[in-house]
Design a protein around this nucleic acid. Structure first.
Lengths: 381, 381
DNA sequence: TAAATTTTATCAAGCGCTTGACATTTGGAA
DNA sequence: TTCCAAATGTCAAGCGCTTGATAAAATTTA
């Protein structure tokens, strides 16, 4: 329902105060098929202004098209051009607002100057890993003058189905986000032997593909160390089945500080969601287990733990300090601002682009494991 | 561009102990320019497997290239083809794994089958509006067989700078996310008269451009009504300067229920962040203002209010019920799960694509205002 | 059976740009 | 002055596909 709106012309009513009268030309443009409530008969179809091409600037200057092309691309190989000519061409190009037709260029060169991104919309809601990854990729590809073709997928079949259809002959390479699915990758290599791709996942790197990952044990190692440095001596851990590798870092940190490892306070949860954190905390509390620190496998874990601890009257961070993983946006404004270890997703996105481009240029490339970073907030200070 | 290796050592070295021995063929594929620590001198450049084109299937069948094109595109205008021929062509295409070169098609037809997205990375961190919008856009464009070119921008100058460069001749139209910047849009219309675009912002729709928005007053109206229906009679409001339009809905809801409007409990905050919510709650508490409900302009507002109220020993939702806007991911696992009104971002993304495609096809299109939806959680039950 | 259709298929001109091969001009060096 | 490199520029083929015009073969109709 629309409030305070006259029944006659809604648009007019809403724009009166601030909006100046419309330029008639603008008005016409608006009508071009895009107007509100446009009545077909009122639409004026103005032929699109012919876009100027190389030919236009060539003939207006009385030179050959190819010269113009070479000058504009700085590709005067054997050709060469006088200073004056170069200047004139550039000026003419500017005057005619020449914009090269990227499609034609691609056809001629076989290069697309575009990369494709297939992103698995994975991760726990709230941890905008995928979003950060994409933003990092977008930033780097803009910086490196690459167009970016994006597609999300929910399931592996969906990916293998759409991947070849969408991207053949349109991108120079692919970034696969969150796809540690080995069979799919192997198949991709078989069926599309000339398809270049790099993966971006935080699973274990087996060295089979070029991946932009994170040093997983290091995540929990620096998280645990962070708590130890702030005085914790009994550090509980919320775990999930798939993170046995990462948890090595937890054990390593304990060992480094001579703190014994106690499996009793490592809770075997089953998800990255906050409910698992709640269960863990409840479990420890019920049994009377002592702990002065908690590391989770996600920020949601920690959020869940915090909820239960607060309800039990435990002071945070005075009695228990906590730290999670992902550095999710909500860490900043949770009841207690949450400390967290970042997997540097944005940066990994950028690296993925840079790596892929190197591969496209034929340079040898290799996997990289980014160093995680601790973001300390109140929950652990 | 197939990079193959003389020595077979490197890939093997890099596989961890955990990984099974590699299939030699796979191993070769892995080394293809992407191997860890690949040494340039060892790389052999094998020409990429030539991809089969229309010509290949034409000559293998002894027919003309154009026939094949028409058959595969179902464009037998005046042409026609026998059943047998059609069948043979399709079979041959399948046999050769023919994939049309989309670039060549675009050049020939002038159609790109691609849409561009320029997304303002706006909004409060944690409310993944932009991400949902993009996902909705991606879903719809995949469904409608459109490629999707994405770019983010932080500032208007950045947008106006990169927009023409990146997207000319590469997309059929543009979706501008979160750009209620009228001057820019007007300029866009002037300088690129043949550029089709639709905006997706939740600002006020002035009817000048086709926008996929949200009925703003309705957001607060249903939020407020939601609280009233659950027994609230003194409903406070955290506001920000730019939301005077939306707040009309708050007033309307009060009026509908015969509740007097009291400006004293409408806090004039300055941001959508949680700190503004904290300030509002502190302000009301200090002055001893009574209220049994709170509506915020964001979920962060509500998060901030909750923090302060809990610290003051106020029971939620028993003494005060709250509802925010955006239905952010963290609403689900905040200390008190937060009720919220969704702006249906994913859906708006889909609508944007559908609308743009209509416009591209020359159909008349108009703005649409999506209806917001209440998601009730514990904070208001 | 010849003429008129209908069906089936080919031709050839692009789309706008790139690029190696070839042509012309110019300024010295001989 | 003559000749040879530079320096400066043009040619033309081609990237892979689309499409209206045209041709040839098959089928009807009279």
């Amino acid at each position: 329902m629309n409030l305070d709106r006259q029944t006659d012309s809604a648009a007019g009513e809403n724009s009166t105060a601030a909006s100046p009268p419309l330029d008639p030309r603008l008005k016409r443009a608006i009508t071009r098929g895009m107007a509100k409530n446009a009545k077909p008969k009122e639409i004026i179809v103005t032929p699109p202004a012919r876009r100027s091409g190389l030919q236009d600037i060539a003939s207006q200057l009385g030179v050959s098209l190819s010269l113009v092309s070479k000058v504009l691309n700085n590709r005067l190989g054997t050709t060469g051009a006088s200073q004056a000519m170069v200047k004139a061409i550039h000026e003419k190009a500017a005057e005619l607002k020449y914009q090269k037709n990227a499609t034609a260029t691609s056809l001629a060169t076989g290069k697309q100057s575009a990369i494709g991104v297939f992103m698995h919309s994975y991760g726990v809601a709230g941890s905008n890993i995928a979003a950060s990854l994409v933003e990092g990729i977008a930033a780097a590809s803009a910086r490196l003058h690459q167009r970016l073709m994006l597609q999300y997928f929910k399931s592996i079949p969906e990916l293998s189905h759409t991947l070849p259809l969408v991207h053949r002959n349109v991108v120079d390479g692919l970034i696969l986000g969150g796809v540690p699915h080995r069979e799919l990758l192997a198949e991709l290599r078989q069926t599309h032997r000339d398809l270049l791709f790099v993966t971006v996942h935080s699973g274990q790197d087996r060295g089979e593909y070029v991946n932009i990952g994170v040093d997983q044990p290091e995540i929990l190692r620096i998280a645990t160390k962070h708590l130890i440095e702030r005085g914790c001596r009994r550090i509980a851990c919320v775990n999930v089945p798939s993170e046995s590798f990462r948890v090595l870092g937890y054990k390593a940190a304990l060992k480094e500080s001579g703190i014994p490892y106690d499996p009793a306070i490592v809770f075997p949860g089953e998800s990255y969601y906050s409910v698992t954190g709640e269960k863990a905390a409840a479990h420890w509390l019920e049994r009377g287990y002592q702990f002065d620190g908690v590391v989770g496998q996600s920020d949601q874990h920690v959020a869940g733990v915090v909820k239960v601890l607060m309800n039990a009257g435990i002071k945070i961070p005075e009695q228990v300090k906590l730290i999670g993983v992902d550095n999710s946006p909500f860490c900043d404004f949770f009841v207690i601002p949450l400390s967290s270890v970042s997997q540097e997703d944005f940066r990994r996105g950028e690296l993925a682009v840079e790596t892929l481009l190197d591969a496209i240029e034929g340079k040898p490339v290799k996997s990289v494991n980014v160093q995680p970073v601790v973001y300390a907030r109140r929950s652990s200070l």
